[in-house]
Simulated assay, not measured.
Amino acid sequence: MKTQRHHPDGQSATTLDQLPVRTQATIREVRGSHHDGGALKRRLMELGFVPGERVQVLRRVFHGHGPLAVRVGTSTFAMRKLESSLIEVVPA
């Protein structure tokens, strides 16, 4: 089920794991995981997943049940659903 949040500026946001393949988006927020004290959020931000950066899902593996191939800036990463669900985006 897709989750969309509406922000005061009128833009609908979703999470990276819900973004359709090949859709360009801008990162709005990186949320922290409750399980690790913010370590995953820090790691994602160190890799370039920062608010304002452009991002795109390039491919979904195993019909959406496996990792995602994601491009942020000029880098490409494989991400689990857990990581990609922490990244809130706004379609560009």
Rank of each mutant, 00 (worst) to 15 (best):
K2C: 07
Q4D: 10
Q4E: 14
R5L: 15
H6Y: 13
H6D: 15
H7A: 11
Q11G: 08
S12H: 14
A13R: 11
T15L: 11
T15N: 10
L16Y: 03
D17R: 15
Q18Y: 04
Q18F: 03
L19N: 03
T23Q: 15
Q24M: 08
Q24N: 12
A25G: 07
T26N: 15
T26C: 15
I27Q: 06
I27G: 04
E29Q: 13
V30F: 04
V30E: 04
R31C: 03
G32F: 02
D36W: 11
G38R: 01
R42T: 08
R42F: 10
R42D: 00
G48A: 06
R54K: 10
V55P: 05
V55N: 06
V55H: 05
Q56T: 07
V57W: 07
V57R: 05
V57N: 02
L58V: 07
R60C: 09
F62M: 13
H63Q: 15
G64A: 03
H65D: 10
H65S: 12
P67L: 14
V70G: 01
R71A: 05
V72F: 03
G73M: 06
S75W: 09
F77N: 08
R80D: 01
L82W: 08
L86N: 05
L86R: 05
L86V: 01
I87G: 06
E88C: 05
V90L: 07
A92P: 09
